[in-house]
């Protein structure tokens, strides 16, 4: 068991930075119990980028919220599993301990920077607040550090900008300010939840470059939550694909794109319009993702799967290991990879 090193001396090499282990989350709604996470497990090492890929409702953001300890309970209920940071289970840790980890151990940036920032305080104040409360810095030192952070994320005229309010920033600059804020306490792990979805492509490229640069420089762990298969291909070391609250495939980035190990991943890649070719008919995935109130028996993907057999309708596929370092929750994972 190790503890979080507040001085930032770095993690113990062999233990993973973060380990999400068999996480189960339910949402109790008026219409019934939605099983939002059904046994999610992944690990992130220092300096590694894990992309969590999935469509809306697949559970990728709920996993992140559970890791950060910001899940709304109720309606959410964590019914099983563990979230270990440097080996310490955060789910059973006291609130005080969780607060200590938040920000300095694990920090998070959100999709919509405008609603994540407080409109009535200056950007500078919002960065400085953490430094004053958590690090006990004086106003003057905190201001100095806030300017440095804004310079780090390449905001021009940081000295002047630090006094401005979020609405005075453009979309790209707000996202930069949020990154600066998340870095204020030197986190070891950064969770970025759809950080560029609301941005234009040229700005998206700037932000992704910046995130990558900062991550390499600080040897930070990065969890990138996204639905964009293009962004994932450019930055991820490993990919976890989520569907109906499960991770259906996990592997290194190249393998996933070259030889997908789950029919859902394969179909998703097949349904993309490509910039480099004029297509005719796109391959589609028939039907819709299942309602989390009524997840189908067996493999949750079977009603939409072209390869579905009888076994898929009755038995939940276990995590197969079709190749070293790969996981796939498909009964036919080995065949699928061999065919590719």
């Amino acid at each position: 068991m190790s503890t979080v090193d507040e001085t930032g001396a770095g993690p113990i090499p062999s233990a993973p930075l973060l380990e999400v282990d068999d996480l189960f989350v339910e949402f109790h709604t008026r219409d019934g119990v939605a099983r939002v996470l059904n046994g999610v497990s992944y690990r992130v090492a220092a300096g590694e980028t894990l992309a969590v890929l999935g469509e809306s409702g697949s559970g990728k953001s709920v996993t992140a919220q559970t890791v950060m300890g910001i899940l709304d309970t109720p309606p959410g209920v964590i019914t099983g599993g563990a979230v270990r940071f440097h080996g310490e289970d955060l789910l059973t840790a006291p609130d005080r301990r969780r607060r200590a980890v938040r920000g300095s151990g694990i920090a998070m940036i959100f999709q919509d920077a405008l609603s994540a920032l407080n409109p009535v305080f200056t950007v500078g104040f919002q960065i400085e607040e953490q430094l004053r409360v958590r690090r006990g810095m004086s106003r003057k030192d905190a201001r100095k550090r806030a300017v440095e952070l804004l310079e780090l994320v390449k905001i021009p005229n940081a000295r002047g900008r630090v006094r401005q309010y979020p609405h005075e920033f453009s979309g790209g600059m707000r996202q930069r300010a949020m990154i600066a804020m998340s870095l204020a306490l030197d986190p070891e792990l950064l969770i970025a939840d759809e950080p560029t979805t609301a941005l234009d492509v040229t700005v998206q490229a700037q932000i992704m470059d910046l995130l990558k640069e900062i991550q390499v420089e600080r040897h930070m762990g990065l969890i990138l939550i996204t639905h964009d298969l293009g962004v994932v291909a450019e930055v991820a070391d490993r990919i976890a694909v989520m569907y109906a609250g499960r991770i259906v495939e996990q592997a290194d980035a190249r393998s996933v794109y070259r030889r997908p190990g789950h029919p859902y991943t394969a179909a998703l890649l097949d349904s993309l319009p490509r910039l480099d070719q004029k297509g005719t008919e796109l391959n589609t995935i028939k039907g819709l993702p299942p309602s989390l109130l009524r997840i189908p028996d067996g493999c949750p993907f079977h009603p939409r799967c072209a390869r579905a057999q009888d076994v898929c309708r009755t038995e939940v596929p276990p995590q197969h290991r079709p190749e070293p370092g790969r996981l796939s929750a498909c009964h036919f994972a080995e065949e699928l990879i061999a065919d590719a």
């Binding site: 021009p156 453009s170 979309g171 790209g172 600059m173 234009d200 492509v201 040229t202 700005v203 998206q204 490229a205 700037q206 992704m208 470059d209 964009d228 298969l229 293009g230 962004v231 994932v232 291909a233 450019e234 991820a236 980035a253 190249r254 794109y257 070259r258 890649l269 993309l272 490509r274 910039l275 480099d276």
Partner: peptide
């Protein structure tokens, strides 16, 4: 040209091998 080069291509094999034009600043 900048717009086209900023679009991420869903192919990790091309990582670092595409020419990339990065625009500065905002519109």
């Amino acid at each position: 040209q900048a717009l086209l080069s900023a679009v991420p291509v869903p192919d990790p094999e091309l990582r670092g091998r595409r020419q990339v034009i990065r625009l500065e600043g905002d519109v």
